[in-house]
Simulated assay, not measured.
Amino acid sequence: MSDTLVKKLAGVSLIWLLLVLITVLCIVWTMPDSKQTNAQTEICLQNDDKSVQCGETASLLHALFEKGISSAYDEAEKREKIQTEKYIHGSLYTLILDALKHDVQLMTDYKNALWNMKPSAKLVGTRAEQGHVLGNTTMATVTSWRHDKDLYYTTGFQRYGIRFQNGRLIVPVSGTYYIYSFLGLTDRRLTDEGIAVEPNNMHEIKHAMHKYNVLDTVDMEIASNLQSRKNASHGYFYYYASQIATLAKLRAGDEISVKLSDVTLLKHTGNNYFGLHLI
């Protein structure tokens, strides 16, 4: 092969190489610039359809959390709807099994807690004699009660919202209550010298429980106990025991009190008691 032919082939090869290099350079120059991801401010996440989405870290994460929370709420709402339909339309046997699996223990604990937190109170009598009410011709509220902190170290108590004011127990929630009261009453027949005491009041003894509500402004009798006075010929004192126990439907704010037709009979009040509890 002659030197001329070799030189021609080398020239052609060089031309092809230059064309290839020029083509590559043109392709590189015409390609769009690719934006680099900054790991400090941007993040890439894979979508449900396997595509990758890149963007500002805070915005993408916020959108992701909102989507997750929305999904959780939707799932909870769906489960609640299913359980409601199951409760309405499902068989009793299936419901019992589900309850045994999931909710019985929680509901039992919850109900036990509610039962223990029902408003209740028991006041016990003070040892101080109640003040005299002039004439004793009308029903007077018995106010000689230990209450609040004075009930410590006694058999009495005030729990879960029951308040005491002016001889009255104030109920915190509406409902049916068991209310009760006991009064021990003493009427003197003879003085220490054996002289007969002229009675100031010969009317029947009435022991009653009343309720009052500021919305009604009416004092209403709930239950009462009426008994005649004794006429015995022996002993220095007459003793009367009076007890009331009943159920009453009360409203929040009702004030329950004990009333007596003759408070001069309240000479030894330490054994008296008065209370209520929600049933």
Rank of each mutant, 00 (worst) to 15 (best):
L92C: 04
L21D: 05
L18E: 08
L92S: 13
T23D: 01
A63L: 09
W29I: 10
Q36I: 12
H89R: 11
V28N: 03
S34P: 09
L95K: 15
I43N: 01
D49A: 06
L97N: 08
F65V: 15
S59M: 03
E56I: 11
E42S: 06
D109G: 09
C54T: 07
L14W: 00
R79Q: 14
P119N: 02
L97M: 11
K111D: 11
T30D: 05
V24R: 04
L45H: 01
G55A: 00
G90S: 03
D103Q: 14
V20P: 00
V52T: 04
Q46P: 01
D103F: 05
W29T: 12
C54F: 05
L64D: 13
L60M: 01
F65M: 14
T94G: 15
Q105N: 06
D74R: 13
L25E: 02
K101D: 14
A63Y: 00
T41Q: 03
C44T: 12
H89W: 08
N116C: 04
I22L: 13
M107A: 08
L114D: 11
D109E: 13
C44L: 02
T108C: 10
L19Y: 04
N38F: 01
N38E: 06
Q53D: 03
H89E: 11
K111E: 12
D33A: 09
A99G: 15
K35I: 09
S34Q: 10
F65W: 09
T30W: 03
P119C: 06
L61T: 08
K101Y: 14
M107Q: 12
L17Q: 03
W29M: 11
D48T: 09
K81C: 06
S51H: 03
K118D: 00
Q46L: 02
G55F: 03
V28I: 11
L100H: 06
K67L: 04
V104P: 00
K78V: 01
G11K: 14
Q46S: 07
K78C: 06
D109H: 10
G90D: 05
I96C: 10
A99S: 14
S120H: 04
L60K: 00
S59V: 13
A58K: 12
L60V: 01
Q83K: 07
V104L: 15
I96H: 07
Q40I: 14
Y87V: 08
I22F: 12
I27F: 11
L21E: 07
Q36W: 03
K50F: 10
D98N: 15
C54P: 04
P32Q: 02
T23C: 08
